[in-house]
Simulated assay, not measured.
Amino acid sequence: MWDEAVTRYDFGPSHPMDPVRLALTMGLVRAFGLDRAMEVRAAPAAGDSTLRLVHREDYVAAVREVSEDPGVADGSYGLGTMDDPAFHGMHEAAALIAGQSVAGAEALWHGEVEHAVNFAGGLHHAMPGGAAGFCVYNDASLAIARLLELGAERVAYVDVDVHHGDGVQAAFWDDPRVLTVSMHEHPRTLFPQTGWPEETGGPEAEGSAANIALPAGTGDEGWLRAFHAVVPELLADFRPQVLVTQHGADTHFEDPLAHLAVSLDAQRAVQEACHRLAHEYADGRWLALGGGGYAV
């Protein structure tokens, strides 16, 4: 899923969420000829009815308002903060990214494709009623919510970003149809200070959330051991119909905003494992999303 306009999701030149990372990634896709080996699609921006599958109506209205006039942003709804400074076109850019993830999920569910990728997505910190952690609309949650709307009964979400996938967990905290698994740096040492192992789901969905909190400094061996010790067993028990994964690159040892020490080789190994798990437990239906990562 790709539209050049997703690079308009731009918080400014001093912000670490630089859209150049998206342009560089698409440049690699083209350089390796992947755009000729697979279908590249663009989808329209998510409309209000889709956004309201997860986000509150008043929050969507607030995003629209600051999108038209960034000067009115005062920190309400998490907009106009250091993490999420307001900019012209914020709503349109964020909704476009969400639209790519939702369209990818729809194509999977309708059997048009086996795998779908939106590397501009994975904005997992956005909450139903507010922006957080560089994330305005939670495309991962919206894709999952759309799958449920289409009739999915079991969707598994696996998040290997260095930060806890708090927004997705919150969206489905009491929904036993969604298993959320997040492997991240321990909340003692990193934003958003959630994702403790004791967080296991709400009263209506006990056991539907799993959090693997790793100490700062964890490298390839510990990271891969944690993944392989927990994720396959959870998926084998849950038997998802669709697997949605978030692959934030900020676990990398050169990322200056976090404290894990993972290599590209280990990141690739986890992505390959997710591919195998999708085929083993979800009939190959796999939606892979991007995520955080400091573009140097």
Rank of each mutant, 00 (worst) to 15 (best):
L51K: 10
S182H: 05
D255V: 02
I144N: 05
V178P: 00
T7N: 01
T189Y: 10
L190F: 11
A5Q: 07
H164F: 12
E114Q: 11
V168A: 12
N118A: 10
A5Y: 01
L257P: 00
A269V: 04
A94P: 01
E68Y: 05
A156D: 00
V262M: 09
G217I: 06
N211V: 03
M17V: 06
D220H: 12
V20L: 12
D69M: 04
S263P: 00
V54L: 14
E272Q: 11
T200F: 09
A229F: 05
Y9L: 02
G167E: 01
G290A: 07
A282C: 09
A205R: 04
V244I: 13
D174F: 12
M26L: 05
A42K: 06
A170H: 11
Y281H: 15
M127A: 11
P13S: 15
D161G: 10
P44A: 14
E65S: 12
C274A: 08
V168T: 14
R8P: 00
L264N: 11
A31V: 00
G201D: 04
F11R: 12
T194N: 07
A170V: 08
L24T: 11
A93N: 08
S141K: 07
R268N: 04
L150R: 11
G104Q: 03
Y157V: 05
A210D: 00
A95G: 03
A140P: 00
V160M: 13
A216W: 04
W286H: 15
A93W: 10
T194V: 08
H124W: 12
R239E: 11
S141T: 10
V270M: 09
N138H: 07
F119Q: 01
E272F: 13
V29N: 04
T245M: 09
D58W: 13
A229H: 09
R225Y: 14
D250H: 07
A86M: 04
A229T: 09
R239G: 00
F238E: 08
T7A: 10
L108S: 06
L123I: 08
A43S: 06
